[in-house]
Design a protein around this nucleic acid. Structure first.
Length: 892
DNA sequence: TGGATCACG
DNA sequence: ACGTACGTGATCCAC
């Protein structure tokens, strides 16, 4: 085998790398604000392509500067190029270091471009019988291709390359050989490099001429033989230009280089030495990979290997040692699926660094006094990953987990809401801890998921998890202190975890017969509608397929196309509503959609998740998911049960109390977000409206439409004002407002301007919160909940605008979330203190749903609003309304 | 798996 | 000139 020489066009690939990850430019920065997008992509290229290639010789050639022999010949050479973006310029020195760590020399030569260095070394290599490979993003280098020299050109990003050998060049250039490429450029010129060719000659003509005359020289020697034509004239006139361009396009293959092939031996990548460099660049994934491969044992931040962890499998013999654990322990309970209400418990680990870790497969061990006492002890602190899951799981075993000190996932979410991971290893990586494999790599995924039957494998992984919890605990807690988020964590989120766990465990009773009865009626209705639709369409098709429906409506029936989506015609409600007067089928389709939604999502969907054991639905509240601090509800989602339309609202009749002679009781905050807005903006007029308990939308209408105090606000004005109020909360735009109330953009703009004149405090606050976000990179709620907005300074208008709207909305939505969370905590303890049987069951963002004995209803009507409106003290009053009835439907 | 649609605050 | 309202989850289809 011939020895190999690899030559890399540094600048060209750096540009490609930069633009390959350009969309993430604002997100990819290290601790010092250095952009790393090109570095990441370039590193991927080196990792995936160069390292495995293991060439004998290798060099990355760089451009030395703007002035080269080509600019001497033509002032304007490459003169039309935009200047290199500063975000890329700052990465160049580090790109060179990166290359060095990968065992590759860098080289540049004043007066020449990287191309000329590559050309010269490629020829030298070929002469020495080396197999030469060139990697570039620039097709001009294809002129170097010959039987010994192969050129790889980037196709997409920097890791997908297209290979050019002599045959491939001929194929690509329609019969032209690699040597002829220079002459082609001479004739066509190059707009990117800004040199001219011959007037009116493009690639097609150039290829035709060169196929006939072979070279530029030969063409001009025989120029008189060409038939008289405009082209011939142009060729003759532009002769000098053509030869100058040929000279510029030709890559030099014989420049004098102070280095030779022997100076560019490839050394293996220095994976050990690169670790601090990766750490500086914040390359977490790379670090994790290296660590998994066994590097970095002696580097700071890279933790001791698993072998150093004191661990033992639990036996009858060592139970006394487990029982002797004191102070603070970490605990992890493994399951086979995320739904902890039903998932199987397949193993656990418990312990601490000092006294060791204990691991077992059977959860029966947890029921032994030794371990049960630890878990229920109010003096021994527990550190966990996902406290709520752990509480619910242990509750299934009859164990009440007490005294949780740290839930690392909850804390990590408060530190950065983007941390919504469901794997300890991912979380660990974010905190520079790498001694743990991902669940996927140990258990597999999808059909291949399996808990290892080998104790050694499972136990090691479980101990790694609990050890990781133990190591991460002080790190996350220290950061909470940095962020001034300890009160948020200790007074709101952690106490809330217990409350949510109780609500989930309680579940809500469902009358399945009621649901089934509703379901059979809906099925009948659906088949009627289906027949009507087929009949009007003149054929049968899948009504639920937007594609097929679009074809029927817009192709067969030729209805006007109002809106398109990425994939075809839009058939969304607002579109269909506009089409309804045009064709009666549309009304049927709207009906069908509505009924199908209720039937599929709410009848069948809910029936599927009713637990057979207790006829209840147990949702899970995601406490570490939303970007604003709200909860979300899954499996099933009980926060989007229909209410707006009567047909759907009937679903609520199936949600009933779990005891005879009990009621469903609900209480909701009225206008909590606008009240929060009034409070944080300090706006006098908005505050006054709430202090006087005005109808807030009517009050806004009066102000933006200039009505006096006693003038009547008509329904339409109130509707528009309500949309403005919503718009303010969402981070308003004239376009958005115009869409929502169907007025012109100009009209919407005027309304917003008037609003800001009338509520100057709101205007000032919105401006200041965006400015604050731009300065800090994040915004905060009343309780110092934090949301990072990395795109707030983005160049892209869209990304930046979105971040700005988010900056305005998050403190409002998030503070409202803070308030109801506090109310829930206070509520739970009030119910307990007063010895009530009432149980809090659901939270729907601004409302709480309870079940209670009928006899307790009068007490709740006093107590619940009182607790809710006193959760925090704002500059405006909070208002709470309550309702009750025999089902959720009736609690209105 | 992603897009379209639609349910909620 | 850009192309938008904020925050979610479940279902279906199509690839």
């Amino acid at each position: 085998m011939a020895k190999t020489l690899l030559l890399i066009d540094g600048n060209s690939l750096a540009f490609r790398a930069f633009y390959a990850m350009h969309s993430q430019l604002d997100r990819m920065k290290n601790q010092d604000g250095l952009h790393t997008n090109a570095l990441v992509a370039f590193n991927n290229f080196l990792d995936t392509l160069v390292d495995p290639m293991q060439p004998d010789y290798c060099l990355v050639a760089w451009d030395a500067g703007k002035t080269t022999f080509r600019t001497e010949k033509l002032d304007s050479y490459k003169g039309s190029r935009q200047s290199t973006p500063p975000e890329l310029v700052e990465q160049f020195p580090y790109l060179r270091q990166l290359v060095e760590f990968h065992g590759i020399k860098s080289y540049e030569l004043p007066g020449y471009e990287a191309d000329d260095i590559i050309g010269t070394l490629a020829k030298l290599g070929a002469q020495a019988d080396l197999a030469v490979t060139i990697v570039t993003g620039d097709r001009d280098l294809l002129q170097l291709v010959d039987e010994n020299i192969t050129v790889l050109v980037t196709k997409k990003g920097v890791t997908e390359l297209e290979t050019f050998d002599p045959a491939a060049v001929i194929e690509k250039y329609d019969g032209l050989t690699a040597e002829q490429i220079v002459d082609m450029k001479a004739l066509t010129g190059d707009t990117a490099d800004n040199y001219p060719g011959v007037t009116k000659i493009g690639p097609v003509t150039a290829i035709k001429l060169l196929k006939e005359w072979d070279t530029l020289e030969n063409l001009y020697e025989n120029i008189e033989a060409l038939k008289k034509s405009k082209m011939k004239e142009n060729l003759i006139n532009d002769r000098q230009q053509a030869f100058m361009s040929q000279d510029l396009a030709r890559i030099r293959t014989n420049i004098e280089l102070p280095i030779g092939i022997d100076d560019i031996n490839y050394r293996d990548a220095d994976y050990e030495g690169i670790i601090p460099f990766y750490q500086m660049l914040n390359f977490k994934q790379q670090l994790a990979k290296l660590h998994a491969a066994g590097y970095g044992k002696n580097v700071n931040n890279m933790q001791p290997k698993q072998a150093d962890i004191k661990m033992q499998a639990i036996t009858e013999a060592n139970l006394t040692e487990v029982a002797a654990l004191t102070g603070e322990v970490s605990f992890y309970l493994e399951t086979t699926s995320p739904n902890y209400h039903v998932s199987e418990m397949v193993g656990f680990a418990i312990g601490n660094d000092k006294q060791g870790y204990f691991v077992g497969r059977s959860v029966d061990w947890l029921l032994t006094p030794a371990i049960r006492d630890l878990l229920t002890s109010s003096t021994i602190k527990k550190n966990v990953y996902n406290a709520k899951a752990t509480i619910v799981l242990l509750n299934r075993l009859g164990i009440t987990l007490q005294n949780i000190a740290t839930d690392i996932i909850l804390a990590a979410y408060l530190l950065d809401t983007n941390t919504n991971v469901d794997d300890i290893s991912e979380l660990a990586q974010q905190f520079d801890y790498y001694d743990i494999e991902s669940d996927e790599s140990v258990y597999g995924k999808g059909a291949k998921f399996a808990i290892p039957t080998d104790d050694e494998i499972l136990f090691k992984h479980l101990v790694n998890k609990v050890h990781a919890i133990n190591q991460l605990t002080p790190k996350v807690m220290a950061k909470l202190v940095d962020h001034e988020q300890m009160p948020l964590y200790e007074k709101i989120e952690l106490p809330l975890t217990y409350v949510l766990a109780q609500m989930e465990i309680a579940g809500i009773m469902v009358d399945t017969e009621q649901l089934k009865a509703q379901g059979s009626k809906l099925i009948e209705r659906l088949s009627e509608l289906e027949q009507a639709i087929y009949q009007k369409a003149g054929e049968e098709f899948n009504i639920q397929s937007p594609k097929q429906l679009g074809e029927i409506l817009f192709e067969k029936m030729k209805l006007p196309i109002i809106k398109k989506t990425k994939t075809g015609y839009s058939t969304a409600v607002d579109v269909l509503e506009q089409l309804a007067p045009e064709a009666p089928i549309v009304e049927d389709i709207l009906q069908y959609r509505q009924v199908a939604k209720i039937q599929q999502t709410y009848i069948e969907g809910l029936l599927k998740v009713v637990h057979s054991t207790d006829s209840k639905i147990h949702t899970r509240y995601m406490q570490t998911l939303t970007q604003t601090g709200r909860l979300s509800s899954v499996d099933p989602n009980l926060q989007n049960i229909p209410i707006r339309l009567e047909e759907g609202r009937k679903i609520r009749k199936a949600f009933v109390p779990s005891h005879v002679d009990w009621q469903i009781f609900g209480a909701d905050y009225s206008q909590i977000e606008l009240r929060v807005l009034a409070h944080i903006t300090g706006d006098e007029h908005l505050q006054a409206a709430f202090k006087e308990d005005d109808d807030i939308h009517a009050a806004t209408a009066r102000r933006i439409f200039g009505l006096s105090k006693d003038e009547e606000v008509d329904g339409n004005m109130r509707r528009k004002a309500k949309a403005v109020n919503f718009g303010i909360v969402y981070g308003i735009s004239d376009f958005g407002l115009s869409q929502s109330i169907g007025v012109s953009r100009a009209e919407a703009k005027t309304m917003i301007e008037t609003y800001f004149e009338q509520y100057p405090g709101v205007n000032a606050w919105l401006k200041s919160v965006v400015a604050e976000a731009k300065l800090n990179g994040y915004v905060e709620t009343l309780s110092k909940r934090r949301r990072y907005l990395p795109e707030i300074n983005a160049k892209s208008f869209n990304l930046r605008s979105f971040a700005e709207r988010t900056a305005m909305n998050t403190p409002i939505q998030g503070s409202a979330a803070d308030i109801i969370k506090l109310a829930m905590i206070n509520m739970q303890s009030a119910l307990k203190d007063q010895g009530l049987q009432a149980q809090m069951l659901l939270q729907v963002h601004d409302e709480l749903i309870f079940e209670a004995p009928t006899s307790e209803i009068p007490i709740l009507e006093e107590l619940v609003p009182k607790i809710m409106d006193s959760a925090v003290s704002l500059d405006v009053p909070l208002k709470v309304e309550s309702h009750y009835g025999p089902t959720w439907f009736d609690a209105k």
